[in-house]
């Protein structure tokens, strides 16, 4: 029986483990009392046990994720673009960030036309910035609109 665990699955489990350890460290440092740790510690212990169980049963029973390497890279690129968009909204302005994200996003999703993506992105960014700008009660950084 060969041992197979997809790298992305291993990364997910590592993130959960690291986050659980960091949470416990922070909570225990803040106050070592039953009331403070009543949910966190039992949940963390069960989580660690479950991670071990999943790792141990991660051989043939670990169903391979859908799609191949190409799909995964495409997903990751779009995800990275989305993260960059969310981080840059307050730096380059909501309008400009939305315009570039939608443009590049459409291209990443497979549009071949050269002029359609920026044209659609422009209309979308103008409409979104105007509509949400009127709707939200918070100040919103914009560069052009």
């Amino acid at each position: 029986m060969s041992y197979r665990l997809a790298p992305s699955h291993a990364i997910f489990l590592a993130i959960v483990l690291a986050f659980t350890v960091a949470m416990n460290h922070s909570a225990i440092t803040a106050k070592f009392s039953l009331n403070n740790l009543i949910i966190l510690v039992p949940a963390s212990v069960i989580a660690v046990i479950l991670i071990i169980v999943i790792l141990l049963s991660g051989s043939d029973s670990d169903t391979p994720p859908e799609g191949g390497m190409r799909k995964m890279l495409g997903d990751l690129l779009l995800l990275a673009l989305f993260c960059a968009f969310c981080s840059l909204m307050f730096v380059i302005g909501f309008d400009v960030a939305t315009f570039f994200f939608v443009w590049f996003g459409i291209v990443l999703c497979g549009e071949r036309s050269l002029w359609k993506p920026p044209a659609f992105a422009l209309v979308f960014a103008v409409l979104a910035t105007t509509a949400f700008g009127a709707l939200f009660p918070f100040p919103m950084k914009t560069l052009v609109l």
């Binding site: 779009l78 969310c86 909204m89 909501f94 939305t98 939608v102 996003g105 939200f136 919103m140």
Partner: peptide, 17 residues
């Protein structure tokens, strides 16, 4: 290919809202 980036952008706007 047009719908996904548009809805994703709305997700970020929604989070800000």
């Amino acid at each position: 290919r047009y719908l996904i980036p548009s809805v994703l952008a709305l997700c970020a706007w929604g989070g800000f809202g």
